[in-house]
Design a binder for these strands. Structure first.
Lengths: 99, 99
DNA sequence: ATTGAATATAATAATATTTGAATACTTATA
DNA sequence: TATAAGTATTCAAATATTATTATATTCAAT
């Protein structure tokens, strides 16, 4: 059996992306870079809520942001997370229930 | 941008495996089936704690258990989770930080 | 400098999660 | 039936997370 310490960082990452909003945001970012307004416009959520979740993702280095004029463009930075997202998207397309 | 509902189930799964103990337990189960005592012996944790986490994993159909005499043998049931675990293990072996 | 659009932060109340301790259940065996 | 090993459940305290509201910041254009 593996040591617990070894998995703490991964567990932390998984917990962070294991939130419906954050996961939805990430799935969107997998397709294209977006700014905050794009996201909350599209999801119908308060701006602050979206900004907070983006901030959480950024703190874990899952996403990165780049200033573009008055906007801020977000994109996914972490390749492991990208790969997990791709698994999920593929799974969703196949319509499987149990993985 | 995708709809939030669509990702709720996946988010739920990710959150559940996004716990250091549960992730460690799952990584162990990826290698071999184990009973509760094997696990808490190995990790040095209270029996109740391990049993509780196994119960959480079982409720989400991530693992399954089979009675073997007085013991109970746990194994991973969910293929999606298995695939995610494999990604993590591979990542860990490569020693990448951002991958 | 002021305005407005885009974004970030802070504070807080509500809610959820985690852990540990105690207890109960189950099965095999004497 | 009594005992022991393995496992599960319950409860409560400590802790962490979430959404909301309000406020602040940044940049571009006037």
């Amino acid at each position: 059996m593996k040591d617990i310490k070894k998995f703490e960082n991964y567990a932390d990452l998984l917990k962070v992306i294991g939130h419906p909003l954050r996961l939805t945001i990430l799935a969107g970012l997998l397709e294209r870079k977006s700014c905050v307004k794009d996201i909350w416009d599209c999801l119908g959520l308060p701006q602050a809520t979206v900004s907070q979740h983006l901030s959480i993702l950024k703190n874990k280095n899952i996403i990165r942001s780049k200033k573009v004029g008055v906007k801020r463009e977000y994109s996914i930075e972490n390749e492991l997370i990208k790969n997990i997202l791709k698994l999920l998207v593929k799974e969703g397309e196949n319509g499987n229930k149990n993985g």
